[in-house]
Structure formats: C-alpha cells, structure tokens
C-alpha cells in the first residue's frame, strides 16, 4: 500500500506540481489549501508525512505544527516545512516547534523527492 502524504499549501499550481511528482513517485497525495481547518485535515487524513507551508491563509504553519506535536496520536508524524523566506530566524523557529526538515522556496522537484524519501522509509 502506498504511503500517504498530506500537502498543506495554498498555491494551487504548486499543489498541482508537487502532487504530480509525488504521485509519480508512488505516494498517495492528499492536499489541503488553508490554515483555518488544517488540523481537521491532519486528523482526518492520518498521513505518514505532512508537507506544511509556513504562510497559509488563516493560520501560520508554525502554529499548526505546534498543534501536531502536542497531539498524542499525531506527534510522531514527520513534517517537512516549506517557506518563502530563507532567513535563519524562520529556520530556527521551524526547528524549535519540531519540524523534521525545512525547505526554502523556490525548491527543485529533486529536492522535494529527496526530502520526502529520507523522512519516510519506503
């Protein structure tokens, strides 16, 4: 059975492109496009890996990640964070709230594939 990845990102064409390359790589990709009810999606999908954008409408990716880490059943899920700002501050913040990997936009498809493969043994 394919591993499940949940992509939380608000940019439709990024969603489409990442979904495409991950599906081709054998992942079962689910997507969610806003911050408000992202936690519902996280609970509902029970994914093996979450790709989480920092800047989301409604709620920041950092806050969502804090909730994930505080949730008993979800807290071990690996999380790859995406941000448009490569500043050290954001990287530190991501590490502090418990991100497993941190990637700066614009990333290459190869980077994304390498990151998700390393986070979940397939």
């Amino acid at each position: 059975m394919n591993k499940k990845v949940l992509l939380i990102e608000d940019e439709p064409n990024i969603i489409e492109a990442i979904s495409f390359i991950l599906s081709r790589d054998g992942w079962d990709v689910k997507t969610h496009a806003n911050g408000h009810d992202a936690m519902d999606a996280v609970r509902h999908r029970a994914a093996d890996l979450i790709i989480l954008d920092v800047m989301l409408p409604g709620r920041s990716g950092f806050d969502i990640l804090k909730d994930i880490r505080a949730d008993g059943t979800l807290s071990d899920t690996p999380v790859l964070m995406l941000t448009a700002r490569g500043q050290d501050k954001d990287r530190e913040m991501a590490e502090r709230v418990g991100a497993n990997r941190f990637m700066t936009k614009p990333f290459s498809n190869a980077d994304v594939l390498e990151a998700v493969r390393s986070l979940v043994a397939t």
Binding site: E11, N13, I14, E16, A17, I18, F20, I21, M55, A84, R85, K105, P106, F107, S108, N109, A110, V112
Partner: peptide, 18 residues
Amino acid sequence: SLHEVISTVTAIRSTASI
C-alpha cells in the same frame, strides 16, 4: 509582494521541471 513573487517562481520552477 515578495511572497507572491517567490510562490509564483516556485510553481513555475516545479512545473517546468516536470
């Protein structure tokens, strides 16, 4: 504005390489 530009660039890069 910068966020918008970077997001768009990211989408283009990813799509183009596909």
